[in-house]
Design a binder for these strands. Structure first.
Lengths: 215, 215
DNA sequence: CGAATGTTTGATAGCACTCAAGAAGAGTGG
DNA sequence: CCACTCTTCTTGAGTGCTATCAAACATTCG
């Protein structure tokens, strides 16, 4: 664990890449049983957990560069699931390959620790949104989050970001009902905060959105 | 990263222990600025985040054996705060000492990765509770969680577990108002699910509690 | 025994949920 | 290119869970 204040270089992962595969929207990123770690090359997905009775809580958006499957490999399966929201391109790794240090540069474990820390921080912010924000603030936050995630990986084009999230996904992300989510989105849209169409979102003013999200 | 399906041995941390200190209930576990990692030896605390406007979201209960400060050391401060809920005894470590592998046994980084994975899993379950459970289920879940955490570190005594959580803490854990939390606790108590008194909780039937928590 | 903190209760308002059903897109096959 | 189907989005009505306000009561602690 060297200095981790800066984002470590993830390029070395390319050397490990074992196989690339494409999956369609709606498919699961990880097979049910096989321990596997994949990196997202293209496309957007979500991670979610299920309650016994079927209620679904979305807990993370997955963008290119993200690693999936760490928790199930390290801690056993059954915790959370991944579903592609767009067609995706994935690189698969053998978990066994991930714990060999590299001769130069940060070792792989260090990188993994950094990634997990970032994931913990994100999850922490997500929890605060679900627990403390009302529907207006929550949805403003969700849109802003999606925007910033897209921006970080260069997916902003012509003033708009990808937004492949059905309203049911947004609802399950924030713990709201579908109907209330719909009405709230419409209200914020009529208010001019953002506009969703064709799987993309266009925002008028990031500061205004941050304000609406109580951030 | 060897086989992490089993809990790694944390005993080696004892060798690192740099200083022990006691803090009173209500105190912060970590100093504002100094990067520091502490392990809880005795006592119970909470971890929480704050929204800009002061709303508080509790995101974890901290029991003996837990490590605090990893995220701030690795990712920068400001994310979450710790507050002691009982008098506590802490061991402090120099973060720099934590990245030296041990000659035998699992290296420290491996252990940290395992701990972080467990924390991610817990946070994921916490999020599902806040997002998907109603007040009844949420509070039943909270009590059950506190019970299981206490049980895991041998804090159950005479059929009761420590419960140093003010109702405001429970409310901020679940994203409920204080008043509604109070009325819900009373309802569940009158229903015979559990009984809180003197900083401890006594439950009548764990299965019944699990059922009430929709788990 | 005050002062501070935490718990309890009642009344009222409102945000969010449920139910129900229609409109709009997206994908499929004839 | 047009039916057909499925998913997603939208809207209205009615209910209820949860928040807010206000105040009394209990506990802890110095």
């Amino acid at each position: 664990m060297e200095n981790l204040s800066r984002k470590p270089d993830l390029a070395y992962l390319a050397e490990l890449s074992q196989s690339q595969r494409a999956i369609p929207a709606g498919a699961a990123l990880l097979p049910e049983s096989t321990p596997l770690i994949v990196r997202v090359e293209r496309g957007i997905a979500m991670r979610y957990t299920l309650l016994e009775d079927g209620r679904r809580q979305v807990e993370a958006l997955v963008y290119p560069g993200d690693l999936c499957g760490l928790t199930s490999v390290l801690y056993g399966p059954g915790a959370s699931y991944y579903e592609a929201l767009t067609p995706m391109m994935l690189s698969s790794f053998d978990p066994a390959d991930l714990h060999q240090p590299l001769p130069d540069g940060p070792d792989r474990t260090t990188t993994l620790v950094w990634l997990m820390t970032r994931e913990l921080t994100r999850l922490s912010g997500w929890l605060a949104s679900v627990g403390q924000r009302n529907a207006n603030e929550g949805i403003a936050w969700f849109v802003m989050h999606a925007w910033e995630r897209a921006e970080a990986v260069g997916l902003i084009e012509k003033d708009s970001a990808p937004f492949p999230f059905a309203q049911q996904v947004v609802a399950d992300s924030l713990g709201l009902s579908l109907v209330h989510t719909n009405k709230t989105i419409r209200r914020l849209r009529d208010q001019g905060l953002f506009r969703i169409a064709g799987g993309r979102v266009r925002i008028s003013s990031l500061p205004a959105l941050r304000r609406a999200a109580a951030l």
